[in-house]
Design a protein around this nucleic acid. Sequence first.
RNA 1: GCUCCCAUCGUCUAGCGGUCUAGGACGUCGCCCUCUCACGGCGAAAACAGGGGUUCGAGUCCCCUUGGGAGCGCCA
Length: 485
Amino acid sequence: MSRPVVTRFAPSPTGFLHIGGARTALFNWLYARHLGGRMLLRIEDTDRERSTEAAIGAILDGLSWLGIEWDGDVVYQFARAARHREAAESLLAAGRAYHCYATQGELEEMRETARREGRPPRYDGRWRDRDPAEAPAGAKPVIRLRAPGEGETVVEDHVQGRVVWQNRDLDDLVLLRSDGTPTYMLAVVVDDHDMGVTHVIRGDDHLTNAARQTQIYDALGWETPEWAHIPLIHGPDGAKLSKRHGALGIDAYRELGYLPAALRNYLVRLGWSYGNQEIFSDAEMVAAFDLPQIGRSPARFDFAKLENLNGHYLREAPDEEIVAALEGLLPVLGPARGLGRGFDPALRAKLVQAMPGLKERAKTLVEVLDSASFLYGPSPPALDGKAEALLDGAARARLAGILPGLAEVAPWEAPEIEAVVRSFAEGAGFKLGQVAQPLRAALTGRTTSPGLFDVMAVLGQAECLARIRARAASAEARPALSAAG
RNA sequence: GCUCCCAUCGUCUAGCGGUCUAGGACGUCGCCCUCUCACGGCGAAAACAGGGGUUCGAGUCCCCUUGGGAGCGCCA
């Protein structure tokens, strides 16, 4: 390794950090880590109209949440405008660029003509060799690159291979606008060069830009970086994943209950593979990631697979961590569920205790929280349709029948509870399920839940007896309802 | 329209000329486990877009067609 690898992630703060950007950032981060290099972050905010502070915040927060950390200070492109101008001026002085006074109207006309003649729309170079003395009085010129008119421009890409453009198909792009501000094309080249970027890993949509940027590098006499243009991520329907097609910001994935580790794992396998391995710890990802295994074709985003991965990471996560993550989501998930901004200590303890059974059955944090509703909802819990149907007269009679036995259980631990329930079922000639399901319905309001005896242990003896009495057949058990708190 | 990129199960992908009667994962469907649901285990259905070449031999190389996608701004 002759020179240390430097990659960069360079989003423009005109919106949230979307899934494609997140993967690009992840790839840059992994590649830099893999080679012991650095990943820099540059905010491309030269579009003053559309750039916002909120978007910058969303991008930074999104990266942090995803666990992608950049090296050094964030570079703000707009702050480097003077340097960009200086580069354009040097090109002008060297004769590699020139002033162009063409008006918007003329440009429009050129594109029109080109299209009509079946040529790629491009600037015709009318000011390329024209005497500046002919410039219309008072007109502010732009500075255009004097691009090579013949020959070809080649991009050796680590993903796409060798891509060749005929120079006649590329026009003299604008480097500096008439108001003296740099264009994206110039700014990127100058910044990547100044920041010492060795590898540009970005979306496929920049492939053509790589050709044009190569011409700028050449004119400046600089060495081009290594390129790796990764295929875009499409929506489930195969169409481009854009804001209009329901693309979500990374914060939306957080609120949907996905874990950063799961998202990283899902994203790294979207467009990149390592034999048949599907699950990667961060260390494994860093160790295995490399450019040659990046695929060339675009991938569709598949929520089902993300959910599966999320379930995997949920099951692996320590119980306390999940509760903490749940708590972090309370501001957005709590209100609709009657929960505040935090869990009180008692509920918190119950959640931790119930978590082993809860997390095994959920794909997302939202599902974890919902399936735990019997711990924080009303008592007795409202019955859903299936639970209501299940609690017919016979079932309610069974509830009444087991009440005395349960009142005797001590200590109130899962094995002891299970022993009593089983012996009751056996003695009365019921199958365990005939007793367990009514109990489940009475205690949770649903027909599905974590293991019944674990649920009972977490709920506590008094609460269980109260809930069972509330649903049991015996009339004299009813008054006890009010005592159930 | 022009330039460029892409093409293996529904989806993500393995495959880098012969070991492919094409492998894994998600999803789907069965069966087992079982107090429910999950988890887990076992099994099934499911793909080399089409056509030409090259080669003793092509999913793998070349060309065309078709189908996707991206880019063509004094946006980034």
